[in-house]
Amino acid sequence: MPKFSLQRIVNAKREFVFEVFSNFENYQKLFPQHFPSVRVRSIRNNVSVVEEYLNLGRQELLIMAKHVSENPVSHEVFVIGGDIKGSYFKQQFIELENTTKIIVDVDLKFKGKSLISSMFRKNDYEQEYSKILDDFVNIIEN
């Protein structure tokens, strides 16, 4: 299944970058084109379980995700149920002089052959997820 990494440099402090990425409760408000629905099911310390709809290209994916945050260093998302169960997203935040480097590792796993055949090639997944990352960067810098 598709695995890829993306990187961006943003003009913002690491703590603020981390706050935007780890504040999944506001994804629906900030990124409705990518997250049309987000429902928090459970929060305990730095671990949360969230039901999300994720638009990736032409597909709306229903997922149950476990979010694990290590402030301000990383935010990991383990997909524990739904259309892409077993998928994994890791966001790392590296503090530079006056900027922050974001590294996102994505490992997509699709449930069912019909979902796979209706999607696109690895480069298409990467391009579509890159659009999501660009929208996060735009929110952070504006």
Rank of each mutant, 00 (worst) to 15 (best):
L96D: 12
D105T: 11
I84S: 06
E95G: 07
V106F: 04
D105G: 05
T99L: 10
G81L: 09
I84E: 10
T99G: 04
V79M: 06
I103D: 08
Y88N: 07
D83R: 02
I102T: 03
I80H: 01
I80S: 06
D83E: 12
I84N: 03
T100D: 03
F93Y: 10
I80M: 06
G86N: 02
F93D: 09
T100N: 01
F93I: 09
T99Y: 08
I103C: 05
F78Y: 14
K90S: 14
K101G: 09
V104R: 08
V79T: 12
E97K: 13
T100G: 07
E97Q: 13
D83V: 04
K90C: 00
I103Q: 10
K85I: 11
I94E: 13
K85Q: 13
V79Q: 04
V104Q: 13
Q91M: 14
V77F: 00
E97W: 02
V77A: 10
I80P: 02
V79P: 03
G82P: 03
L96S: 07
V104C: 14
G81N: 10
V79R: 03
I84K: 00
G82D: 03
N98S: 15
E97H: 08
L96F: 09
G86C: 05
F78I: 10
K90E: 11
G82T: 05
I103M: 08
I94G: 00
F93R: 08
V104G: 05
K85G: 00
F93E: 10
D105R: 06
Y88P: 00
I102N: 10
T100Y: 04
Y88E: 05
I94V: 13
L96E: 15
I102A: 12
F93S: 09
I103S: 08
D105A: 10
Y88L: 12
F78L: 11
I84W: 01
S87E: 06
D83C: 05
V77T: 12
G81E: 07
Y88C: 00
N98C: 06
G81Q: 09
I80A: 01
D83L: 03
S87P: 06
G82Q: 00
K85W: 00
Y88Q: 06
G81P: 08
E95P: 03
F89S: 01
N98Q: 14
Q92R: 09
I94Y: 12
Q91P: 00
N98I: 06
Q91C: 14
F93A: 10
E95H: 09
I84T: 06
G81C: 09
V79W: 02
Q91G: 09
D105P: 03
I103V: 15
E95A: 15
T100E: 01
E97S: 15
V104E: 13
G82H: 03
V104Y: 12
T99P: 02
K85H: 05
D83I: 04
I84G: 07
K101C: 14
I80C: 02
K90N: 10
I94P: 00
G81A: 08
Q92K: 11
I102Y: 11
E95W: 01
I94N: 08
